[in-house]
Structure formats: C-alpha cells, structure tokens
Design a protein around this nucleic acid. Sequence first.
DNA 1: GAAATGCAGATTGATAAATATCAACTATCC
DNA 2: GGATAGTTGATATTTATCAATCTGCATTTC
Lengths: 233, 233
Amino acid sequence: MCSKLKSGCCKGCFEEDDKSIFVGLTDKELDFLTDGKQQIRYNPGETIVKQNTTSTFVVCVREGLAKLYVEGIKGKNSIVRLISKHDFVTGGGLFNGNIQKFTISAVTPVVCCLIDSSKLVKLFGENNQFAVEMLRFHIKQNNYLLNKLVNQTQKYMPGRVADTLLYLKNEVFGDSTFSIPLTRQELAEMSNMTKESFVRILQEFKSSEFIKTNGNEFQILNESALLSVSKNG
Amino acid sequence: MCSKLKSGCCKGCFEEDDKSIFVGLTDKELDFLTDGKQQIRYNPGETIVKQNTTSTFVVCVREGLAKLYVEGIKGKNSIVRLISKHDFVTGGGLFNGNIQKFTISAVTPVVCCLIDSSKLVKLFGENNQFAVEMLRFHIKQNNYLLNKLVNQTQKYMPGRVADTLLYLKNEVFGDSTFSIPLTRQELAEMSNMTKESFVRILQEFKSSEFIKTNGNEFQILNESALLSVSKNG
DNA sequence: GAAATGCAGATTGATAAATATCAACTATCC
DNA sequence: GGATAGTTGATATTTATCAATCTGCATTTC
C-alpha cells in the first residue's frame, strides 16, 4: 500500500518545491510518524476536512484533486487553493485549539494520508530541522495568502480570471493545455465572482484569442496577454 | 535604553496573547539575540521595511503605531494590519530569499528593534521550543490572513467598514472610544475601498447611531449592530 | 437501436445593485 | 490664507441578480 521508505510515502508525499518537509527525519522518526496513519480514499464530493469542526490530523494527498475552501457568508464559498499529489495541508489542526478554518473536499477520487498532529508536535520537540521545515512551509503559505488577498481585493474581474487560469496552468497542471474537473461555479469561486461573470470573461478571452475552450478542455494560447490582464492593463 | 531582562525587551517585546515567543529562551540565548540589535526611532511617514527589497531583519515594535501594507497595482495600497507595542513582524525576511512582500511604515513616531533573521535561524537550531513558538505564531498569522481574505472578498462595503471599526476597537485600541492617527484614505485602505465610499458608510453608521465621530475621535455606540452588519445582515 | 425525455451545467440577455470616479465644496490646521 | 484632509453630489463603471435559453449526456421508452 504505502511504504515507509524515504523515497516513497511519506517523504515523497510532502514534496514542496522539490524539497520535502520530511527530508530531515531519521528512519526511526519516519516510522513513528507513519505508524498508525490512515490512508483513505474519498469519492468526488466527499468532505475530507470540515470547517468549524475540531480535527487533529494533517492531510497529505497521494492521488487526485481536492479543493480547499472557506464557507463564507450567505452560502458563498471561496476556493483558496487546489490540493493535488504531494500537497500537504495543515490548518487549524495544528495548534489554535484544533478548529479547522476551512473545508477540504474531493473533486476527483482522492487518496490521502491523515496523520495525527500530536505526532508532528512530538517530532518538533525532537528534531529541529523538522520544525524549521514546517516553519518554512508556513511562511510560504503566508506569502501565498498575502498575495492572494491583494490580488483578489485590488483587481477587477478580468484580472482575477486571468490569475485563476495562470494558477491552473502553472501550479496545478503545469501545462498550457489541461482538462479541469471543476464546474464553472467552482472556477468562479476560485476567482470570487459569480459563475455568470466568470463565463462572460471567458468569452472575452476566447474572442480575443487568449484562450481556447471546449467544455472542460482549456488551452492557453497567449500567456503574455493573460499576464498583462493579470497586471491590470 | 533597552534592557535584556526577560521581563523587559526582548521578552516583553514579543508578547502575543500574553505569551511571549521568547519565553523558552535561556538568558544566554536572549543575550545572543539582543547583542548588536538595533533600536531605531522612526518619524511618522518613514519607511521601516520596503516591499520588494531584500532585508534580513525582523521587526519588534516597542512604541508607536505602524502600518503593514502591500503596494498593489495602479498605486493602490492595501493595509493588512496595524502594528503596535509588542507586535512582532517577520515577512519575506525569514527564508524565501529575504524578499519583503510588504511595506511597513510609521504612522506615529515608532521605536522598534531590528533583529537579524540569521540569529533567529541559529536559535531555531538550538532551541526547539523557540522554533515551535515561531511556528505557532505563523500559523496564527495564516488564520488571520485566511479570515481577512474571505471577509474582504465576500462582504459588501458596509460589512468591511464594520470589520475595520471592530478591528480597531478590539485589536488595536482595546476600547470603544479611540483616537485614530490615520487618515480616511488609510482607513479606506484597511477596508479595500475608496475614501469617498468609506466616508459615506461612516455617515450611514453615524445616522444609524452605531458610532459617533468627531474628526479622528471615534466612539462605538452599538457594537452588536456593527457585528450584525459585519455578518452581512 | 433510435428517438424521446429529463436534467444539470453552461451560456446569454436584460436589469438592478454596488462601487468608483470626478468635481465641487467645506473644514481645519499651521 | 493656502494647503491638506474631509465631505457631498452627480455620474459612470463594474458586478450581481434574475430569467430564459441552450447544450451535452444519460436514461427511458418504444
């Protein structure tokens, strides 16, 4: 199933910019961490982590795509990021009274490992390198959120749609052609607008030949134009 | 000037919810940290940290009020948070190639200590408790940003103005009556809107008797009404 | 197996609401 | 008395809402 080898799970699970958070752990520490961890399969639509509940585990995705979103006011959701292979998620589950600040649900079938936070905390006390790696991870997370905050609050809708498309290309699929298992509604929730607005701007981008779409197939034709829109030209 | 006593600076400097980040440091470690640190005075308007520059220090405010903001597109600024006595700020200065993701500038005269990041990093390697405290700090920061992201993107202007007023009361001044050394423009930048819009909503709140203002003197008369507006009623 | 049916998501149009912009005016502080 | 911040009004732009239609796909029905 899920080997404990450094090269596999969990070392490989927690890859972040080609540098695993778990790189500094000894075999023994890795064993401690992975003993009793749960590897679970979720079907599309299923909730992995539920906002406002307490849960004490962190999530590491092995397969599939999940969305991390905040359930806001009047039924509005904001998708903050997509989680895919090798992504690692800690939230309220680490300190802060364990209250989750967001929901994670499976978009495609997801296989992920749930590791109890208390194990991480114990390892922090034993292995400095590990605590520092986790700190580094959270600082990166901080910068991502800060950047997202400014982009979402300062840009008009076309800039936000361009951001979403570029995010999908660069951070999720790594290819200018991709097939998205998300509805227009969900893409709109990534861009904090209504689905109608999102669709209209997609049409503009299509008629300007910045992109090509066919259902869920997307192709970015003119990335520099999107970048320019993103910078709000 | 700035004693190295646990009860004073720097222990006291880094207070966060009555629990100092520096609580786990030994006297020797504290000495190491504070030796050669710079205590600087800034005049109102002066820049303490400049976005997109590299700088390797973290900031700890002893006196005064500063604003932490992102310089966005087309000259728009977003004030992310206010920094006052005992607040601690790390940013791009810690890992991430030391590139600052935001600007910090003094609103009132500010006295603060600048500590080189490399000293923190060295202590992380020696004192686990310290690394964990720093991690805890950043996770809290994360939750703050996540919350701010959703509030700013999902709420209409009245909700955002209510949030700003409640933030000032609860997080900055700790009193329902306060005098703000910020312009309307800056208050608007905290709420991500134009100053004209901010002023109009202030007037609505005044005529509804939620608040009373006289220049920079603010008084919150009906906090539960503001809370209700914040929740977008 | 082919046509009819149903349904959910996608798209489009018309309109209303929210927000920004621009201009004018007022107050205030050195 | 001039500069700066604050306020107000009129208007334009951006964005959401509501309603209608369309599309693709699966299922039923014959």
